[in-house]
């Protein structure tokens, strides 16, 4: 186990270094220097090259990569030339709200998808199973922003239950004061997640139901309820751990679209605005942080899976 952990950690570190290199190279190719952004569209070539020289953007790429890596190790994500603020402080301002959206929708999605998938497997091919599978299939094929538009149309515009405009406060506490208006974004994110999770949950529950230990549990006279709670639920939920570990990039991508659709002042909207503003340090920082969180998520999921499933032997 320890040996496995060390090796797994070693791979993760290599992957993280690779991620940093790839994101840096992408930044370097897509936007070699922010001079134009800083000096404005009418800057003369001489002014641009002077600025590049003063700020070190005329050095070879590996030298610039060294600086980038050094800054990164010191927790310095760069400077947003458009917003005149460090990227760190931008993230500190906006991360709580976006994190809240992601986590809440993830929790809601699991709370719905887990029982739903197990129910579908137990009542296989019943009316409920078929309708749930069909709905899941439709939502699985629907982009998250379309779900958002549908929800706005139905619950905000037609029924008038919630406000179509979400709170513009970028702090979490300010947004939570109007929690009712955050319901639609959370539901939209959770719906698409449920659509894919419940499919996995259903098939993993079906696999478990076909196992011998379920037959044994039934044969020894356990009540169906005990068979389900002790044997089915626990075993069938294991693949969910991996799925959650893998879902982070999807959640973040969903956040970008949802925050744009609802105009929520979080990291996702900041990313879209940074695109239009050519604010590359912000773009790269967000990509990099998401990628590193993904690696950590997968690592944690693997370890959790091993801890909770003694059948998995790591060598």
């Amino acid at each position: 186990m320890t040996g496995y952990l060390i090796r797994r950690l070693g791979t993760a570190i290599i992957v993280v270094l690779g991620i940093i290199l790839v994101t840096f190279l992408m930044l370097h190719i897509v936007a070699p220097s922010p001079a134009q952004t800083v000096l404005g569209p009418k800057a003369t070539p001489a002014a641009i090259s002077a600025w590049n020289h003063t700020n070190g953007f005329d050095r070879p790429w590996y030298s610039q990569f060294g600086t980038y890596l050094n800054n990164l190790l010191h927790g310095n994500l760069g400077w947003s030339y458009k917003l005149n603020q460090t990227v760190d402080s931008l993230f500190k301002e906006k991360a709580p709200l976006s994190g809240f959206l992601s986590l809440t929708s993830l929790v809601v999605a699991i709370a719905v998808a887990l029982p739903l998938g197990i129910f579908q497997a137990v009542k296989r091919n019943s009316f409920g199973d078929v309708s749930a599978t069909t709905l899941a299939f439709v939502f699985y094929s629907m982009p998250v922003f379309l779900v958002a538009l549908l929800l706005i149309q139905v619950f905000a515009l037609s029924l008038g239950w919630v406000d179509a405009n979400v709170p513009q406060d970028q702090s979490l506490s300010g947004a939570l004061a109007h929690f009712k208006d955050l319901i639609l974004p959370i539901v939209a994110l959770a719906t698409t997640a449920v659509a894919s999770y419940s499919r996995y949950q259903r098939s993993s529950s079906l696999d478990v139901l076909a196992q011998d230990y379920i037959k044994v549990a039934r044969a020894k006279g356990l009540s169906e309820r005990l068979v389900f709670s002790r044997h089915l639920v626990r075993n069938a939920s294991l693949p969910m751990i991996t799925l959650i570990g893998l879902s982070l990039p999807v959640l973040i991508g969903g956040n970008v679209l949802i925050e744009y659709a609802f105009n929520i002042n979080g990291l996702g909207l900041m990313f879209v605005n940074a695109l239009s503003n050519d604010d590359y340090n912000v773009l790269m920082a967000y990509t990099l942080i998401t990628a590193i969180l993904t690696v950590i998520g997968n690592l944690v999921a693997d370890v959790c899976l091993t801890l909770s499933d003694p059948r998995i032997k790591l060598v």
Binding site: V22, V256, F271, A291
Partner: peptide
């Protein structure tokens, strides 16, 4: 490992940037 690295990058964000 190259595949692992690229797979860790958030697809939508990278595609948007490029």
């Amino acid at each position: 490992r190259v595949v692992d690295i690229l797979l860790s990058l958030p697809f939508l964000l990278v595609v948007l940037i490029v």
